[in-house]
Design a protein around this nucleic acid. Structure first.
Lengths: 303, 303
DNA sequence: AGGGGGCGTTCGGGACAACCGTATGCTGAG
DNA sequence: CTCAGCATACGGTTGTCCCGAACGCCCCCT
């Protein structure tokens, strides 16, 4: 019987808990499923606790398993910090953000981190909403900045992977804009995975015609050139509104989606279905239990 | 080449750093010296850093080794805390103290800890000064309460083991007392390892006759019965002084030890050699780097 | 000067853990 | 009822952990 919990076991455990299946964790760890299964069994054996309920669909955390997951993250981070302190190697963090947020908010974040933590290398990845949540959950990025709504993460769309925590650090108003004298009917939208596209789907009825573009910045450019109207975040269009290059327009009441039935999720916000521009939360997301190791990064992102 | 630092390696490393020799660590860990040596080599290999200078007298920490030692303690404590949180096992700490301090101060410490941390089992060990310092250094006790003097640990006697930290939480005045009408010449002293005996040796010239007893409480009892005079801590005799069962006496000037030469250690305090009763620091000692895990215990001890 | 004791390390070997590939039993979907 | 996807049991290989014994080093004591 195993006496000591080893970091290697915790690493495997975390991978299984995040992936939800032994097979998935084995892929991430580049191991055979049999090896992963054995490690988990040894860890449970050593602790004298059952960490997972085995189902034919995967591994579901038990209560002690959840307790371990929240702490294992921090312990592995702590071990990493110790190793860095001894070897003198630099620390490397990866932050992810939506395309527009990466362009507008991340430069400031990186600059603040460079001032406060010169011994820190920051990598940036720009992904869409679903990719960001998945990347935070599986460790591909350490923290992410995205747009969401409501009191719990993932209200906007995509069921949230478990074990994530978040903090809202600002609010982004969405404005329906068009070029003065341009086409004010065609609705220019970004791909379905995009946060703002999700807001569009919640705001407009399904029968309003849409033209799908590859990104928000593309949509903004098309709107500038008078090719349609689009729902865009305030920070992306306020300059154009001030200069008069763009103007806000109102949707026709019949275009707006009816308030959804009682059975579904909670309302996006009070303006849902009324046609008024909704506001989204600027939301910082990270893996629960890693606050200690990410403290400086999270502070820099929330400034 | 080892990729990952494992907790087992750190445990062995800490034992070697504390013992100062591979052989000593092997005894503590109940391993063969060869195994310990191999573990250390693997750890150094995995980190890519030399942790010890090998000498024919033992193992001396290098700079990275010292950096690791201070952090390894905390990491192992963290791992213990995680294991306890998952298994639900109770936490157990051992505190040590000098005999008189265990009698007078520890009951309050234990009571405060029982209130604030009901999930904590406290063991108490009463040891003399040298044993306490050694026990803190090798992990036999988690924290200790003793008497000392000066700005650094061990000024009173015994070379301090490395890697200890301390905080003075009070002051203890030593009073030379006797029973009214009793023998006021015979100097009743405790064994040489005792903190107060060390103070006696610093205060009185070597040719003043001493009678050695087994403990401070024994000495107090003998003084009460008029069998001599003794240098005792205030908290042990103040009640008897108030009741008149004991009185303070002054040593004759010729009994006092001359101020020591310039080559030696620092002064005990300003009163050294003057015959005035010196004051000792009530000192809390623990292993550096374990503050996080011992925080509640240290707070309770310093109240 | 010479040997003894204490030190860390090396060496060969045994037990066990961490991997692998494969095979098996399970359950829900089609 | 088959099939896909899942976790796991089974043999086998590699590497880690541990041992006892032998070695080389240095200091100290005679």
């Amino acid at each position: 019987m195993l006496r000591r919990v080893e970091l290697r076991h915790l690493q495997v455990f975390v991978a299984v808990a995040r992936a939800g299946t032994v097979t998935g964790a084995a892929n991430v760890l580049e191991l055979a499923p049999a090896s992963v299964s054995e490690q988990v069994r040894r860890l449970e054996n050593g602790l004298g606790v059952t960490l997972f309920d085995r189902t034919p669909r995967g591994m579901r955390l038990t209560a002690p398993g959840k307790a371990l997951l929240e702490r294992a993250q921090g312990l592995l981070d702590h071990a990493d910090e110790v190793r860095r302190a001894v070897t003198g190697r630099r620390r490397r963090v990866t932050v992810g953000a939506l395309e527009m947020l990466a362009a507008t908010r991340l430069p400031g974040v990186v600059r603040r981190l460079a001032e406060r933590r010169p011994d820190l290398d920051v990598d940036v990845r720009t992904l869409n909403r679903g990719q960001l949540l998945a990347a935070v959950a599986d460790g591909g990025v350490d923290a992410a900045l995205l747009l969401d709504a409501g009191m719990r993460i993932g209200t906007l769309g995509f069921r949230p992977p478990d074990g994530l925590d978040f903090l809202d650090v600002g609010e982004v108003a969405l404005r329906l804009v068009a070029a003065p004298g341009g086409d004010a009917r065609t609705l220019l939208v970004s791909p379905p995975e995009c946060s703002i596209r999700m807001a569009v789907e919640r705001m407009f009825a399904a029968d309003v015609p849409r033209r799908e573009l590859t990104s928000i910045s593309t949509a903004r450019e098309w709107v500038r050139q008078g090719l349609g109207r689009s729902l865009l975040p305030d920070f992306a269009v306020d300059a154009d509104l001030d200069s008069g290059a763009l103007v806000t327009v109102a949707p026709a009441p019949e275009e707006c989606r009816a308030a959804q039935g009682a059975g579904g999720g909670k309302s996006l916000d009070a303006s849902e279905g009324t046609g008024r521009s909704p506001a989204l939360a600027l939301r910082m997301v990270w893996t629960r239990g890693r606050e200690a190791a990410l403290r400086d990064v999270l502070y820099a992102m929330s400034d």
